[in-house]
Write a protein that binds this DNA or RNA. Structure first.
Length: 296
DNA sequence: ACCCAGGATCTAC
DNA sequence: GTAGATCATGGG
């Protein structure tokens, strides 16, 4: 296949890559540095390389053209289009959020090219278990170590993230030595075994009530409200969640409350104020808050 | 030496 | 049901 029209997008094949024309609301830095993913790395030539659901690709975005190496038009249509959430109209989402208040308008403008990735469920679950009481560089290191030690090698420095079949049965002592994830390794061990045995019904998570979805996820050790909401949002299950970490808490207190507020308060505010778009609002606010170091 | 980091868990009230 | 200590690890 040499060329393809997909809605407003035109996809063309070149020698060793594909190019996508007609993309809006798309910025690689916003997408990969907004805290939703841990495995995309900058390349020397201003692109990003990453592995998602076992597929590796290098991406560039220049002059409104997305260039992807190491993939095909078929794979783009069948996977990357979905992964980058390209079927969603972010212009409308941003318009709707910008109308709500001035803070959100600024945050949306600042992260105008954010797209919420539809990441592999098990990888997202493990990654955000590791995120508990941790910092982003160390989360990235532990996730990468798990891939290096238990995933499949694509080339000398790129590995897939292992599925639960690969990770089940690994004792937490070994996980601790090979991932440096500390006390969270006990959670990883339990979660890998439980997920392998039960194969969580992901479709159910997206169709049932938010309350029930959280309840299901919180049966994995190491998963509380915040991690559950992150997994639901960043694996593409649902967008009506408002993961409230220390950054989001701080930015909400500073911009919306003008005082300290409890997690429960913030969640209820988000539900009323942001509604079904809570997840998108959270991502714009998180990126804005962290890049501006609000609250520090 | 002390504090902190995309929190969750366990215990005590 | 909820405040408080505890949980590895590495960097400032």
């Amino acid at each position: 296949m040499e060329t393809l029209i997909l809605g407003k997008l035109k996809i063309e094949k070149t020698d060793d890559s594909i190019q996508v024309y007609g993309l809006k609301d798309f910025n690689l830095i916003h997408i990969f540095e907004c805290g939703q993913c841990f495995r995309w790395k900058k390349t020397l030539d201003d692109g990003y390389i990453g592995i998602a659901s076992g597929k590796m690709a290098t991406v560039y975005f220049d002059h409104d053209i997305l260039t992807m190496k190491n993939t095909t038009i078929e794979e783009f249509v069948n996977f990357w289009f979905y992964y980058f959430d390209l079927g969603r109209d972010y212009t409308q989402i941003k318009d709707e959020l910008s109308k709500k208040d001035l803070h959100l308008q600024r945050a949306v403008e600042f992260g105008s090219g954010i797209r919420i990735l539809k990441q592999d469920f098990f990888e997202t679950l493990i990654s955000f278990i590791i995120s508990a009481n941790n910092n982003i560089p160390r989360i990235k290191k532990s996730v990468e170590l798990i891939a290096m030690n238990y995933g499949e090698m694509i080339d000398l420095d790129n590995f897939t993230f292992p599925n639960s079949l690969k990770l089940k049965g690994i004792p937490c002592e070994e996980l601790s030595l090979l991932s440096r994830a500390g006390f969270r390794c006990r959670y990883i061990e339990h979660t890998s075994n439980k997920y392998f045995n039960e194969q969580t019904d992901i479709k159910l998570l997206s169709t049932t009530s938010l309350e029930d979805a959280r309840k299901i996820l919180k049966e994995f050790t190491g998963v509380g409200d915040k991690v559950a909401d992150c997994v639901l949002l960043f694996s593409g299950c649902r967008q009506d969640v408002f993961p409230t970490d220390v950054w989001v808490k701080r930015v909400m207190e500073e911009l919306y409350f003008g005082r300290t507020a409890s997690l429960k308060e913030i969640n209820e505010f988000a539900k009323v104020h942001f509604g079904e778009l809570s997840g998108f609002a959270q991502q714009y606010l998180f990126y804005y808050a962290r890049e501006h170091r609000i609250g520090l």
